[in-house]
Nucleic acid binder design. Sequence first.
DNA 1: ATGGTATAATTAACAGTGTTAAGTTAAATA
DNA 2: TATTTAACTTAACACTGTTAATTATACCAT
Lengths: 201, 201
Amino acid sequence: MGIKERRAREKEQLRQQILSAARELFVNEGYENVSMRKIASKIEYSPTTIYLYFKDKADLLDSVCQETLLNLLNTLEQLKRDINDPVERLKKSGRAYIAFGLKYPQDYKLTFVVRPQFQEGLRLQEGSIGKKVFDYLHEIVSECIQQKIFREVDVETTGQVMWSAVHGVTLLLIDFPDFPWTEEDTLIDTVIHTTIQGLKA
Amino acid sequence: MGIKERRAREKEQLRQQILSAARELFVNEGYENVSMRKIASKIEYSPTTIYLYFKDKADLLDSVCQETLLNLLNTLEQLKRDINDPVERLKKSGRAYIAFGLKYPQDYKLTFVVRPQFQEGLRLQEGSIGKKVFDYLHEIVSECIQQKIFREVDVETTGQVMWSAVHGVTLLLIDFPDFPWTEEDTLIDTVIHTTIQGLKA
DNA sequence: ATGGTATAATTAACAGTGTTAAGTTAAATA
DNA sequence: TATTTAACTTAACACTGTTAATTATACCAT
């Protein structure tokens, strides 16, 4: 009975091999400049083998991004345990989100900029990791409103405003590293602080 | 002596024809889904003719982008003349900026996301239109601070915070069109309003 | 151990891409 | 009218993602 399991294990192993080859190439050379043949040759399989494990190139990208999202989610969940005050949690979470983006800039862009472009009609599916990340943000914001710390704007909008701010500054810092930014941490803190203040007022 | 001029005029005319055919296709079908052959057939020339006028497909998109950025700049300059109150001007400018991004998502992404990545070490080039757009923002923010409407944060940081907000929401709306956003205009207004409030407080 | 079977991986091919080199047509000059 | 020059097209190359058909491999029952 162990044979089927070993087989499944081997299959999973190859899947992971494809996945990590794809990530490395996507990150280093850009999604568009990476062909299925290039990925295949990296792992020394024929190009079509990949199609036995992933529907198409976009699906492969999607799987790579799911992994990234999972990493992000874990980073955030870690914070939830340690902090009680919702505003403080929101601040720290925002910082953590941005820090994650800056630590893995190419993975961040792959997930939040490239993937949507090539996975047309991508929505936040129920149960998906992306949904969970957003739910996490949603939850904190929700608490801030319940405790009457934020003014009465509906939860959805408030969360989306917060997301816009952190997403925006993350991408700007990634894409224009040579721009004369004010000191990085200052900028990040000011973005978060300003947004939170704006939501209070 | 008029012949050379007529020829030059005709050449410029075809260049414009290519440009506007490309714009229309890029806007309607997305840069990735538009082939050189498709553009060529739209203007009833052979595909290779385009290469007599533009270096490659990226250059074609770049030219489209420059034109539209110029439009944006003109739109903003118009606002400057019509509105006196700096806060009101900032609001309207933010909305115009976002509206531009949503109308020409490929242009916007090319300028502010894709190009910086592939032209490593690229700053907003001195004299470029992108730079001028940022300078414009800088100028308004500067006035808001001078008039003591905004709290005392230095001009650079304030401008960058504002940019982060509009950049963020623009990209999110472009990249996740199927996300369950609150009504688009509501979100945009709230982002701008929140950021401005946060900068006042 | 051998024949059959399911599964995994490959080869060959299609229709399309951006782009270049070579060839052709048309127009302006001498 | 012949020649030069500019504009444009044809044919081709080296790719791309992806599918159908085919081969090789590993397992199972006899």
